[in-house]
Amino acid sequence: MKTLKIIFTILLVAISTISCSSDDGKDGIDGINGTNGTNGTNGTNGTNGATGTANVIYSAWITAPTAVAETIDGTSGMSTSINAPELSEDILAKGTILVYVSFGSGTYTLPYTSTAGGFVNTITAISTAKKIKLFRFRHDAGGTVNLPTTLSWRYILIPGGVAAATSKTAKLDYSKMSYEEVCARFNIQP
């Protein structure tokens, strides 16, 4: 009898398994969709960034007054000055000051060395608050070469920003860039 009970149980399980299929019952109802969660709150504004190119100051092309003979640091030459009202002590201490001379078919970064007048000479800029002195001297210390009033001058003042934290963010050397490259970088009309 025990064996008959076991056979009967096995047969009952087999019949139930065979008679059940997925096609026999009604499909259940789909569940309802859940609600969307609420949006998160906006984060706080970040801190202001370092001084950018929007703060760059540049002059129009200007002419300088007639040059006069002067000796600077034991070197004789010719000098004149242009006004730079935006040139502050802060820019002198932390910024970059670029001065250009334009004549003939070119624009040149100061200091500019040439053989004008038949002698090797250099035009350089000496910056002080609100003024830029233009000084031309001969390399052989034998007299002077004039600074004609027909020359045109332009300055570009780049205020200093936050000091670089690492050497990866080293300051660019604008004095090694051409006038055109500097104008393109700061969106200045040449």
Rank of each mutant, 00 (worst) to 15 (best):
V162T: 14
D173T: 11
I72W: 12
E70W: 12
I15C: 08
T169N: 11
A67Y: 14
S76V: 15
S114W: 03
S114D: 07
D23W: 12
A54N: 15
K26G: 10
G77I: 00
E86G: 07
R138G: 04
I29K: 14
A64I: 01
H139V: 03
I15S: 09
T109L: 05
L12Y: 09
M177S: 09
P85F: 04
R138M: 01
L11N: 08
I57S: 01
G25V: 06
A54W: 14
T66P: 04
F8S: 13
L110W: 14
G160C: 11
R136L: 00
S76H: 10
T169F: 14
A54Q: 13
L92A: 04
S175I: 06
G25I: 04
A141C: 12
V99R: 01
D27C: 12
P148R: 10
I62S: 08
T41V: 04
I7K: 12
T144C: 08
P65R: 10
G117N: 03
I97H: 14
I188G: 07
K2P: 02
A125W: 07
N55Y: 07
G160V: 13
T80S: 06
P65D: 02
A60W: 13
K5V: 07
V145Y: 07
Y174V: 00
L147S: 11
T35C: 03
S152T: 05
A60M: 14
T44P: 03
T53C: 06
Y108V: 02
T41P: 02
V13T: 10
S21F: 12
I15W: 11
A84E: 00
T41Q: 01
S76G: 13
G43C: 01
T9P: 01
P190N: 10
L98W: 10
G34W: 03
D30S: 13
T44Q: 02
I10W: 08
L134T: 00
Y108R: 11
F135G: 05
I82R: 07
A69V: 15
S127Y: 05
E86P: 07
A116S: 14
D23Y: 09
A93Y: 15
S127E: 03
V162P: 06
G161T: 10
I29V: 08
V145L: 07
K26M: 05
P159R: 10
S175E: 01
N33L: 07
T47F: 04
